[in-house]
Computed example of a mutant assay.
Amino acid sequence: MTQGLPPLHRALACVVAAIWGVNFLAIHLSLAQFPPLFLVALRFALLAVPTLLFVPRPQVPTRWLVGYGLGFGVLQFTFLYTGMAAGMPSGLASLVLQASGPFTLVLGALLLGEGVGRRQWLGVALAAVGMLVVGVSRAGVAQLVPYVLVLLGALGWALGNLSSRLAAPPNPLHLTLWMSVVVPVPMLALSLALEGQEAIGRSLSTSFTAEAAPAWAGLAYTVLVGTVVGSGIWTWLLARHPAGVVGPFSMLVPVVGMATAGLVLHERPTLVEVAGGVVVVAGVLLGASGARGAGAAVRRRERRSRERGGLRPSTVRRVPRSGWALRGR
């Protein structure tokens, strides 16, 4: 899984996974002060202003930039933050959000006609079983609605992944940062419509107190460490190694997320939830390895076709190198 990754780069991938795992604790702290929809608008506004001033616009079609912002930014975080505010434990949220990997693969096959191998479908099936196990456990403790909301957030992330893939940016970090420009206005409109001026005003008027300091610390961590540092290192790694080699390290995110939530917030997942989480991780890892194998098979068939003077390379649909490797929070 990690063959060919130098020790330093492997350590950096683990650092990014740790950063993103802790990010769910940071979100939990911020939600204690701000309404969830307004918090999403605030988070991305803090990213959007310096991005507009200092980061060159990525050379991608506007429709895919907007699609990435709406899927990855608006849909994902609307449902994730709302689900966590409704009672979804932060550690468990870090696990359920990994469903974006299988969702990306299925949507890529259905909407983009991407090739999917048998091992990948088996990985999807395993991940689905794991999610079902976690969902049944959540239903047993009257927490099904927050679970479904976070699962919808994973679906939004998957839709954003498709737009990012179609955009094919020469500099993925620029696309990640410019995606933030799309988010604040629709999220502020949603917040005003659903949460109201009173709730927003109350959260802001009490935000400059000692009690609100953890919320601002969590927001600063999410913006500066989680997005700028974490995504920056991850993009640097992906520019130097195949995504199928780097991507599986994202499976450490729920491990760190659940461990951090257990230590700081004293969250204790049930044995059934832990078992379901193990099955989910196994399914995603199996699907990632299948993506690498399917991509290699397509490249071999294409090479043989060229040698026989058959199909031109442009007529063969490639399996994306990215498989279902994920980006961070």
Rank of each mutant, 00 (worst) to 15 (best):
V15F: 08
V16C: 08
L29V: 08
Q59N: 09
Q59L: 08
T62R: 15
W64F: 11
L70H: 02
F72R: 09
Y81P: 06
Y81R: 10
M84F: 14
A85S: 09
S94T: 15
A99M: 13
G101Q: 13
G108F: 07
L110E: 11
L110K: 12
R119C: 00
R119I: 00
V129M: 15
L132H: 03
S137F: 06
A139K: 03
Q143I: 04
Y147P: 12
V150S: 06
A154F: 02
L155Y: 07
G156S: 01
L159W: 09
S163W: 03
S164C: 04
R165E: 04
R165G: 07
P172D: 01
L173Q: 13
L177A: 14
W178I: 10
V182I: 15
V183L: 09
M187N: 11
A189R: 02
L190V: 10
S191T: 01
W216Y: 03
A217D: 12
A220W: 05
V223H: 04
V223M: 06
V223G: 06
G226F: 12
T227L: 14
G230C: 12
G232C: 02
T235P: 01
L237T: 01
A243L: 05
V245N: 07
V246Q: 05
G247N: 05
L252V: 04
A261I: 00
V274G: 13
G276D: 07
V278L: 14
L286M: 06
S289L: 01
G290C: 04
G295K: 13
G295Y: 00
A296R: 15
V298E: 14
R312L: 13
P320G: 02
P320F: 06
A325D: 05
R327G: 12
G328K: 01
